[in-house]
Amino acid sequence: MLKIQNLSVNYGYIAAVKNISLEVNEGEIVTLIGGNGAGKTTTLMAISGLVPKASGTITFKGVNITKMSPDKIVKMGICHVPEGRRIFPSLTVYENLMAGTIGNPSLKKPQIKQLLEKNYELFPRLRERMKQSGGSLSGGEQQMLAIARGLMMDPDIIMLDEPSLGLAPIIVEEIFDLILKIRNAGKTVLLIEQNASMALSIADRGYVIETGNVVLEGKGRELLANPDVRKAYLGG
């Protein structure tokens, strides 16, 4: 469904991503794991067209999106929930959710209503705080809003960049449950996580990235059992 071939990204003279290739099939949960500065966020930004690519091709549902503008890429059905949430602080929760629907022009009013209802069911907190400004939510609530906002565009694939960052363990579990729910609702998920054990335990497949290179790939469970991965990311 999403295919990345030989992607490289440079920031000035820093090579952040070097010749990465990866693939996400429909209905899968695929995770990218790796240490700080490995190039995970950069890879997602390159898919979304937010950073210029030095080389490589990206195709989505058979269409070459390498040179598309970021807003068109979203409209292809690719949702990117960015690192650090980036909700709109002075829009209300409701308006933040409505902003999400802009990414899918085919949505009609009744569908938007349905999506809204679905998201409020998934995140009852957001319904309570509908009229509150996004910036006044707690970190965890903001993360939920960021995910809900992404789901509002009813995308085919959702890319989540460290959704559990800075959240209490109990909320982290909720988020992972949610990712499974999203997949079971028919979506494809590309997940970036520092929490490698949890990510690998729910993922169908995973890629391990180090200093801009894919160093390992395999089934989630295989990677979880791999001694090198255990040593580097799971604390032995």
């Binding site: 503008s69 807003d71 979203v74 960015p82 980036r86 909700i87 709109f88 829009l91 308006e95 802009i102």
Partner: peptide, 19 residues
């Protein structure tokens, strides 16, 4: 909403599919 989204965070606005 688009206008305010763009004025608050341009990168996030792109990710909402806003031109």
């Amino acid at each position: 909403i688009m206008l305010r989204a763009v004025s608050q965070d341009k990168k996030a606005a792109y990710l909402m599919g806003i031109n």
